[in-house]
Design a binder for these strands. Structure first.
Length: 153
DNA sequence: GCCAACGTTGGC
DNA sequence: GCCAACGTTGGC
């Protein structure tokens, strides 16, 4: 399977690219949206991820991560104490899944969403067309274009 | 804080 | 299966 590309959103006040830098690797838990979950289940080890800061000033692409573990059940759905506990999920047939990603690098500066929106080559990005989806596919040429706009080699 | 866009729930 | 009501996301 050829390498694929994705974009994953995180609120930096909760978990930023700098948190990922210091952790090295993290599990992408607490996703409770079927489309986002399906996208995570389609990921392969080695796929590259644009790490996006939402609810930030400015919102935008903050860096790059890489998938290091394919989808496995999200433990938080079974944790009664957890905010995203899901009483409807069966341990033998879990509803929610997550992947592990590792830090690759941070952009020197966040590439702001408005610059993405202004770039005609990126007009069809899911990010531009459906601003709500938190885990989304990115085309190879879109990924390359984002890196270019973000000042990456 | 507002609100548009989207997703989910539940009555019928 | 439709659709109104409600909830959430996320830019601004």
């Amino acid at each position: 399977m050829a390498k694929r590309y994705w974009l994953m959103k995180s609120e930096p006040s909760v978990y930023s690219i700098e948190n990922l830098r210091s952790d090295g690797t993290t599990c992408w838990d607490s996703i409770r949206n079927y489309q986002a979950r399906n996208n995570m289940r389609a990921m392969s080890v080695g796929d590259e991820v644009l790490f996006y800061h939402s609810q930030a000033i400015p919102p935008g692409v903050a860096g790059i991560a890489r998938v290091v573990r394919e989808a496995y059940p999200d433990h938080t759905q079974f944790d009664r104490e957890h905010e995203y506990f899901d009483p409807g999920s069966d341990e033998d047939d879990p509803r929610w899944w997550m992947v592990d990603v590792e830090f690759v690098r941070a952009f020197d500066e966040v590439l702001p969403l408005n610059e993405v929106k202004e770039d005609s080559a990126l007009a069809d990005m899911v990010l531009v067309r459906n601003s709500r989806l938190s885990v989304q596919p990115v085309k190879a040429e879109e990924f390359r274009r984002i890196l270019h706009l973000g000042g990456q080699p």
